[in-house]
């Protein structure tokens, strides 16, 4: 089961991103549209089309234990889903006074959870399956790490986070909670 984390500045510029492969079991998702799909595998856009229609099985049947590629796992599809969820997040953050917005958006097998900091940074996480408590704990860790990054006078606010320690710490937290 994979997770995709994006840290977005107030102007929606990505400052950090992480893909995390969790060892926890994948919940089986059945997408109704997928079975009705014609075989477009020769088309250049096959990956995108199958992904948008909800087919997560496009290249899954190749090997049993391998990491899934194609289908809903395409990088550009992930980015598109995360981008699309921003509208919902913007709406919700003015209605709710909570920083952790759980499951704000859904797209096929993906659920989008978000965390909005007081400084209007948005942490967007794409995940499969439900794990509210773990995701909350993960977001709190990322928030603390982000505050530590921000108070460093050598870091300019709202610029890409390149610190390797930050990266290591976020990965460790992802392993722990996701």
């Amino acid at each position: 089961m994979s997770h995709h984390l994006f840290l977005l500045s107030p102007s929606d510029t990505p400052l950090y991103s992480l893909t995390h492969q969790s060892t926890k079991p994948v919940p089986t998702v059945t997408s109704p549209l997928a079975s009705n799909l014609p075989t477009w595998s020769t088309s250049a856009f096959a990956g995108t089309l199958t992904a948008l229609s909800g087919a997560s099985s496009a290249t899954q049947h190749t090997t049993s234990g391998a990491v899934r590629v194609g289908g809903g796992q395409d990088r550009h599809v992930i980015q598109m889903i995360a981008n699309a969820s921003l509208d919902v997040i913007e709406d919700e953050m003015h209605k709710q006074n909570l920083m952790y917005l759980k499951s704000v958006d859904k797209f096929n097998e993906w659920t989008v959870s978000a965390f909005v900091t007081p400084g209007n940074m948005k942490f967007v996480l794409l995940h499969e399956g439900k794990n509210d408590e773990g995701i909350r704990a993960f977001f709190m860790d990322v928030w603390e790490l982000y505050v530590k990054t921000l108070v460093n006078p050598f870091h300019t606010a709202h610029t890409t986070i390149r610190s390797s320690v930050f990266d290591t710490r976020v990965r460790a937290s992802a392993r722990k909670y996701l």
Binding site: M93, H94, K95, Q96, N97, L98, M99, Y100, V116, T117, P118, G119, M121, R136, M140, W143, E144, Y146, V147, L150, V151, A157
Partner: peptide, 22 residues
């Protein structure tokens, strides 16, 4: 930019349901 983030973190960082003012 640092004051707001750090100040609220200190107040809400240990809360189960951290809140922002809206």
């Amino acid at each position: 930019t640092r004051v707001i983030e750090l100040m609220v973190w200190r107040a809400e960082g240990s809360s189960k349901t951290p809140k922002r003012e809206i």
